[in-house]
Write a protein that binds this DNA or RNA. Structure first.
Length: 530
RNA sequence: GCGCCUCUAGCUCAAUGGCAGAGCAACGGACUCUUAAUCCGCAGGUUCUGGGUUCGAAUCCCAGGGGGCGCACCA
């Protein structure tokens, strides 16, 4: 069996296509060419030319010379005339390549260009007889040889696993993927602009922490060698940002990655991006208004409308137009379950309500956790399907960092924003009484003792020390950036708005196949069951 | 973690117990105005892996792996 035949037998047609492209690389080098040259000076992008020459008649010549560059996506070979359609970051454009213009030798080189190659071309802007805007190529350079073939030019790449693992291919061939990440970028930029304009200072705080606090979630654990010290990846931004408010940064925010060692779903990725905002002298009402300003502006900047597609119902859209309703969670519970409950009710009565609604609970839960469970299990998913809604006045028992509602120690001035049945944002008037904060921490430690793996296990003494220096009245807010991106891009899965979502590792054999260099005769020998 | 669905050529998909196929991509050829170019020809397979049932398995069964969806989990 010859080497080539064996290779083909083992790895199939992919190896044949890669071999042929690799041989072109060799051939280019053999005549002193460079298949991976240095820079190319581009004078115009495809979209700039489409905009500037939108009105040309068919068959027009402009005498305007341009340099363009991009990846070859389509090729139509007519013999002595070749049409190439390339794609750059702005869009795509046709190259008109005539043997009469280039001469036989240069034309033959263009005929060797494969789909997926990067090329740079220089020539006159024209339209064809059919009116297609084109660059009539006077010279064309290979800028990068692609060794692997692109997916089907018409159907693209649809296998979700491959799309996520090989996002580079997804982005090359799927316009919807490019659009999604453009929307995400514009939304993030918009949030940042809004906060900057309102005088907020952007900061960065530690990702590696001695104790992960600020939320109820199981953290990722790692280890610092030099300190010989276990460390945690942060699960929230909150406690460090409030230390900065103590330090006098009265308006502060961070856009950053947080990590939660929990289940993966269409709405949860182990690492995700939050923006948290803290505003001295403000309260939770101010933060609701700020949330609304931020998301409304993001919608306008990213998609130019207040009408967003419903994540689960293709035929429905959600209207983001201000002002969004604000309702107490107990009112929403009554409205959607018919049960009148209060955090001041006796525990047995609340347990009876949970039993009626078929909600399970732990025997150590107080009234706050029970009321919250009712809201969480029976009401949340029903909220925000026509327009966003703020729910507020959450039990203190489930809000250990929030300030009590004036005159009601069992409730807090906390809110959550729901859009399309999903939680998008969470905020409150910050608890700034260090004595009460210590009590709340100790309650959490007790919950951890009950087996609550998400409860904070230690009292954050440094945070309490900071509070003792005086945290002014402060409003705080956390927004899940990924969920905003899902909302605005109309994507039903968080994996669609994260460039490289968390996946199981690829199989060894598959990784091997994908990572194998070429040409290299040894690889093929190692792979197969020869 | 549990349940359901799914895995066939580089890509997108057929073949439902009886010869593994098509389109695109590739390769050879024709073609100076195409638009997913067209036309002729040719090649490409560990049907995810391992067992089993059967005269015969891509197809049925069991186990494992990847993925999707749902549930559980998720202040």
């Amino acid at each position: 069996m010859s080497e080539d035949l064996k290779r083909t037998t083992i790895a199939g047609n992919l190896e044949e296509q890669r071999r042929i492209r690799a041989e072109k690389v060799t051939a280019i080098r053999a005549v002193g060419g460079d298949p991976y040259p240095d820079r190319f000076v581009r004078s115009a992008t495809s979209v700039e030319l489409h905009e500037r020459f939108a009105q040309l008649e068919p068959g027009a010549e402009t005498a305007v010379m341009v340099s363009v560059a991009g990846r070859v996506m389509l090729r139509r070979n007519m013999g002595k005339l070749i049409f190439l359609t390339f794609q750059d970051v702005t869009g795509s454009l046709q190259l008109f390549v005539s043997q009469a213009d280039l001469g036989e030798e240069a034309f033959a080189a263009v005929a060797d260009i494969d789909l997926g190659d990067w090329v740079g071309a220089q020539g006159e802007v024209i339209t064809t007889r059919k009116g297609e805007l084109s660059v009539k190529v006077a010279s064309l350079r290979l800028l990068t040889k692609a060794l692997r073939p692109l997916p089907d030019k018409w159907r693209g790449l649809s296998d979700t696993d491959t799309r996520y693992r090989q996002r580079y291919v997804d982005l090359i061939v799927n316009e919807d993927a490019r659009r999604t990440f453009r929307v995400r970028h514009q939304a993030v930029r918009s949030l940042r602009h809004q906060l900057d304009e309102e005088g907020f200072v952007e900061v960065e705080t530690p990702v590696l922490q001695i104790e992960a606090g600020g939320a109820a979630a199981r953290p990722f654990v790692t280890h610092h060698q030099a300190l010989d010290q276990p460390m945690y990846l942060r699960i929230a931004l909150e406690l460090h940002l409030k230390r900065l408010v103590v330090g006098g940064i009265e308006r502060v925010y961070e856009i950053g990655r947080v990590f939660r060692n929990e289940g993966i779903s269409t709405r949860h990725n182990p690492e995700f991006t939050m923006v948290e905002v803290y505003w001295a002298l403000a309260n939770y009402q101010d933060m609701m208004a700020l949330t609304e300003r931020m998301i409304c502006r993001a919608a306008q900047d990213a998609i130019g409308t207040y009408a967003v597609a419903h994540p689960d119902r293709p035929d429905v859209s959600i209207d983001l137009t201000p002002d969004w309703p604000r309702r107490k969670i107990t009112e929403l519970i009554a409205e959607h379950t018919g049960e009148t409950v209060s955090v001041h009710d006796e525990v047995p009565r609340l347990r009876a309500v949970c039993d009626r609604l078929e909600i399970s609970y732990e025997d150590w839960w107080g009234a706050g956790k029970l009321v919250y469970a009712i809201f969480d299990k029976k009401v949340e998913e029903l909220l925000g399907h026509e327009r966003p809604i703020f729910a507020y006045e959450y039990p203190a028992e489930v809000s250990p960092l929030a300030k009590p509602t004036p005159g009601d120690q069992e409730n807090t001035d906390r809110f959550e924003l729901f859009i399309g049945g999903k939680e998008i944002a969470n905020g409150y008037s910050e608890l700034n009484d260090p004595v009460r904060q210590r009590e709340m921490f100790e309650m959490e430690v007790a919950a951890a003792g009950h087996g609550d793996v998400e409860a904070t296990r230690t009292v954050d003494e440094d945070y309490l020390r900071a509070l003792e220096f005086g945290l002014p009245p402060t409003g705080g807010l956390g927004v899940g950036i990924d969920r905003v991106a899902m909302l605005l891009s109309g994507q039903p899965s968080i994996r669609e708005v994260i460039l490289f979502p968390t996946l199981r590792p690829e199989s060894v054999e598959n990784t091997r196949r994908l990572a194998t260099g070429y040409p290299d005769g040894d690889d093929a020998d190692d792979q197969g069951p020869v």
